[in-house]
Structure formats: structure tokens, C-alpha cells
Amino acid sequence: MSEYYLVDVKSISSKVPRSQFSEDELEMLARSILDAGGLLIPLLLKQTGAESYDVLAGDRQYYAAVKAREINPRQAETVNAFVVAEKSAQAAIQQFSVLYPEPHDRSPQRPPTDGIDQRLSNLESRLESALQEIKQSQKQDVQRLEQQIQTLQKQIPPKVEALEIFNSASSVELLQKLKSAGITGKNATKLITAIEMARAEEKFTSFTDIVKRTNGLGLPRMLAILDAWNHRV
């Protein structure tokens, strides 16, 4: 069985070195993957672990997908692929090579002629994979850092200033807030209307300003509200 999936690009690896393909061509293909909203000739993959795959055929498209992800990491996080079972692998590869002969052929386009060529291409592929590894681990570090920063930010209690609540809370939020200060029903509705009218004219600049400009909100009530909010935080 060959199943059609969206597979995470980062979980795929290829045994063919990237340097074998022209960067310009990969760039062009990558742009077209992004513009067309996907890769139109799916990769053939073999699953090697819970979240790892090897390219069976379509190395060029694979590197184009990698490039697309470099350009737009969110949009091109995944790529269209057939995940091929072990026993159908041979047949699938053959079908693929008949349908899409030239560029998808896995065999190197220029067979190494002499020793130097061979060594050069080996060097190339080693460099490529080392580079990939560095990129990968750097990305993971950045991710981990971002994660930690977010966690830290979360631990800093979100101190919403009471003044800010008066200035920008929606009616529903005000209703909730007033309720926590024991003001409900008609009283709350009236007060909210008064607050909204006053702040529409001009933002409140201080608690004194609120008391001065809000109908029906005297100093004692204001203090009661602030006390109640303080206790809840």
C-alpha cells in the first residue's frame, strides 16, 4: 500500500547530496511550490521511524521543498508525499522512473570519471550533510530559547492596571469586573454606560479623574472597587 500524506519536511532525509542540483533551479521550483500551494508531483518516501523518512524517489523535488521551507517556514512546513510500504517500494520506484524519467532519476547525472571528481563529490556531500546538521541544531536551539522566554513571560503575572481596565475593558469585561466588586444588575449597567460615556470623551488620566467625570461613581464606591480587585489578583 502506498499512502498519500502531508509529511513534515524536517523529518525527511535524502542520500543524494543537494549540491547535485542547481541552486537556481531549486529556487525556481521552491517558488512554484509556494505559489501553487504545494508540490504537484509527490515524493516517494520510506518510513524509517515514527517521525523519520528517507527519499526513495524525487530527490530534486525534496530539495526544492527544503528550499521552499527556508523561504517560508510556516507555509512550507509539510510536503505532499506517498509513503510506500517496504514490499511495494521497488514497483513504486519503477513506476515513478517511467512516468518522470530524466530529472527524477536517482543515479548521478555525471558519473564520476576520475579519483579527484569522486573525492570532490564525496567532500561535497559530507559538507552538505554537516551543514544540514548545524542548521538543524541551531534551529532547535532557537526554538528552545523562544520556548523558555515564553514560559518566563508567562510567569510574570499580567498586572493589568486598574486604570487600564476603566479605559479599555469591553462592556462584558467591565460587567465581570464590577460583579467581582459586588456591583450587579441595574447598578452595574448604569455604571458601565456612565464609564463608557466619560471615556469616549477623553481617556481617564487618574482615579480622581474617573470619580470626577463618571456619573454615579463616588469616592467610597471607587475605593470599594479597587479594594475588591486587589484581593482577587
Binding site: 513534515d8 524536517k10 517556514p73 510556516r74 512546513e77 534551529k139 526554538q143 523562544e146 520556548q147 515564553q150 514560559t151 513571560q153 508567562k154 465581570q176 460583579k179 467581582s180 482577587r232
Partner: peptide, 20 residues
């Protein structure tokens, strides 16, 4: 949906007036 984005700390929020 996303693997490299939208982690828990970015999506999480606090319940509202649900519990103290």
C-alpha cells in the same frame, strides 16, 4: 497543525471568572 509554530505557551489562555 503546525510543528515549528504555535507552541502551548503561545496558544494558552487563562480561564475567565471560572475559578479562584
Amino acid at each position: 497543525s503546525a510543528g515549528d509554530f504555535d507552541f502551548i505557551p503561545e496558544i494558552v489562555r487563562q480561564s475567565k471568572e471560572f475559578n479562584t
